[in-house]
Amino acid sequence: MKPILTVSNLSKDFIKPLDLIAKFLNKVGQDNKEEVVHAVDDVSFTVQRGEIVGIVGESGCGKSTLGRMVAGILSPTNGSVEFDSAQTKTSDLPQALQTQMIFQDPFSSLNPRKRVIDIITEAPIFHGLIARKQKNEFAAEMLQRVGLDPDTLQRYPHQFSGGQRQRIGIARALAVSPELLVCDESIAALDVSIQAQIINLFVQLRDEFTLTYLFISHDIGVIEHISDRVIVMYLGRIVETAPISSFLQTPNHPYTKALLAGVPRLEVGKREYEPVSGEIPSPLAPPTGCHFHPRCPFAIEKCQREAPVLRELSAGHFSACHLNDEAQS
């Protein structure tokens, strides 16, 4: 089956411009260079229709940058995002609508001066998906889909709780019949008991409308719960990707193992924490070779020199670690 999403060799560099002092010092003879962050560094993967793919990794590893490029709101420095739509054959919808992004902050992403009905119907009316006179009926249906009372259509965002606002954000995204949702920390700002409501809603919508998700979260418990497949990133690169069962049972990459070992778990109970040593390096000056080598307990000499490539270990399970080269040769 043709994947709905094919990401090939995708990269994004951000250039950190020189500040005034550095510019001045350059004038008097110093040689300060602009710094470049390889926020996303040569990333490739595919996603099948109806799949929920979780993306995990530490702060600054490029999850949001990747998500924004997939959603088409940030242009890549290199590489491509290919989208195989089921709809393009029948309609001429712009591709930007078929991928919608749901953000962390349900408060700032909704216009406080607009009523819920207008928030939800603005885009579909603009793109001619619905007629103006269908507005009421359509918005009511969208609200029902996300578990909100259609009687609240005329209200403003501030009259809702955090969880309800996140539902409105989801209803707004669903209103343009997207096929792929990129959820960037979409539940991080919500209380645990409310998080459960929204996670259940995402899964239910997937089942009802065969939606596909890229689900970005730093909460590995949530990722484990919701994902069919997991992508682990470290400093801009994918270090491991695996179906959820292999991710949980036979994680391969030392970073993935460290991550899983550090996850607090309700069912484990009281325990001693055995931490990974070292700091997360600055993305401005990532370590040479394998980015993880200064923190890796298994690092060999080669790891400082050479960046490992992703190798397939079993069906759909890829890992980028030199220890696997040894095993193969």
Binding site: S59, H218, V263, Y273, E274, P275, E279, I280
Partner: peptide, 11 residues
Amino acid sequence: LDVTIQGQVIH
């Protein structure tokens, strides 16, 4: 904090 750093601090 990130998971691995959280682990260090708790430890």
